[in-house]
Amino acid sequence: MTILVTGASGTVGRSLVTQLLAAGHGVRALSRDPERAALPAGAEVVRGDITDAAGLARVLDGVEAAHLITFGGDGYEALENGPEIVAALRTAGVGRVSVLGGWDTSTLEPALDAAGVPWALLSPVEFMANTLDHAEAIRAGGEVRVYDGGRTSAAVHEADIAAVALAVLTGAAPTGRRYMLTGGEAVTLEQKLAAVSEALGRPVTLTRLSEDQARADLAVAGLPPEAVEFTIALENDPPPVGSIPVDTVREVTGRPPRTFAEWARDHVDAFRAHAPV
């Protein structure tokens, strides 16, 4: 079967493209910049943007299932054209849809429900790949300077998110439900950095800033005031769901979720001094 993957050059999309190809499926990968997507050989990379429903309609010919994201554009804004996207899916006869959801509901999810399209929502509590936010500091000298409230995170490996999406798209897992996705363990930032240090074979240190120091650093980095305060509040009062592992990955795929140590080894090159910026 031929499956459309939107967000194909992102962490989850890239892993999904790889896994679909390995399973013998045809992949049509949507990218705003096909020349720079660097996706695996075998994928049909087409130019497009999920925010452009008319353009999406042009790439759906022959597509039997689609993996969609709920955001688009340079600022990752929530989709506002959900009904138009769903209309294009229905016209093309797309039979199954997986949706990588965000913190908030976009216009896509209710449009899928209203149209009766078979779909499932993938809801990661946190991405292990968020640790790449510290890659520049680790490459530069190995010191990560942040405000750290000691919260734990049951973050999930993008390859496990992709594996659940593959199961939904190919009929191995049912549509009509929300898949809450976590890793198998809740770890602190200090433990994450220790895993990166182990993978690198050199020290990575955590320097804990005060709230005021963190506010100043985040403002210098360009975060708007509301984003700065959200970041601080998330450390001080994290939602409990983010630190509670659930067994969805094992239930869907038949194997345990990947550990953070595995993620660190998979991505170690991103933290090396020679890694491209």
Score class of each variant (00 low, 15 high):
residue 1 M to L: 05
residue 3 I to Y: 04
residue 6 T to G: 11
residue 9 S to G: 08
residue 13 G to D: 11
residue 14 R to E: 10
residue 17 V to W: 06
residue 18 T to E: 15
residue 20 L to D: 00
residue 22 A to T: 07
residue 30 L to M: 14
residue 31 S to Q: 05
residue 31 S to A: 12
residue 35 E to F: 03
residue 39 L to R: 10
residue 40 P to V: 10
residue 45 V to P: 01
residue 48 G to V: 03
residue 51 T to A: 14
residue 53 A to K: 08
residue 58 R to G: 03
residue 80 E to D: 09
residue 81 N to A: 12
residue 82 G to Y: 05
residue 92 A to N: 02
residue 93 G to Y: 00
residue 99 V to R: 01
residue 102 G to F: 04
residue 107 T to M: 03
residue 110 P to V: 13
residue 115 A to V: 03
residue 123 S to F: 04
residue 124 P to L: 05
residue 126 E to A: 14
residue 126 E to P: 04
residue 127 F to A: 08
residue 130 N to I: 13
residue 130 N to L: 12
residue 131 T to K: 04
residue 132 L to S: 11
residue 135 A to M: 05
residue 140 A to I: 07
residue 140 A to D: 15
residue 142 G to A: 11
residue 142 G to L: 01
residue 143 E to I: 10
residue 144 V to C: 12
residue 145 R to G: 05
residue 163 A to Y: 07
residue 167 A to Y: 05
residue 172 A to T: 07
residue 173 A to L: 02
residue 173 A to N: 08
residue 177 R to F: 00
residue 182 T to A: 09
residue 182 T to C: 06
residue 185 E to V: 09
residue 188 T to P: 12
residue 191 Q to D: 03
residue 192 K to S: 09
residue 196 V to Y: 06
residue 199 A to V: 09
residue 199 A to I: 07
residue 201 G to R: 10
residue 206 L to G: 15
residue 211 E to M: 02
residue 212 D to L: 01
residue 216 A to R: 00
residue 217 D to L: 13
residue 217 D to K: 14
residue 220 V to R: 09
residue 235 E to M: 12
residue 235 E to A: 13
residue 242 G to E: 08
residue 244 I to C: 00
residue 245 P to I: 09
residue 262 E to C: 05
residue 268 V to M: 05
residue 269 D to V: 05
residue 269 D to W: 04
residue 271 F to S: 10
residue 274 H to Q: 15
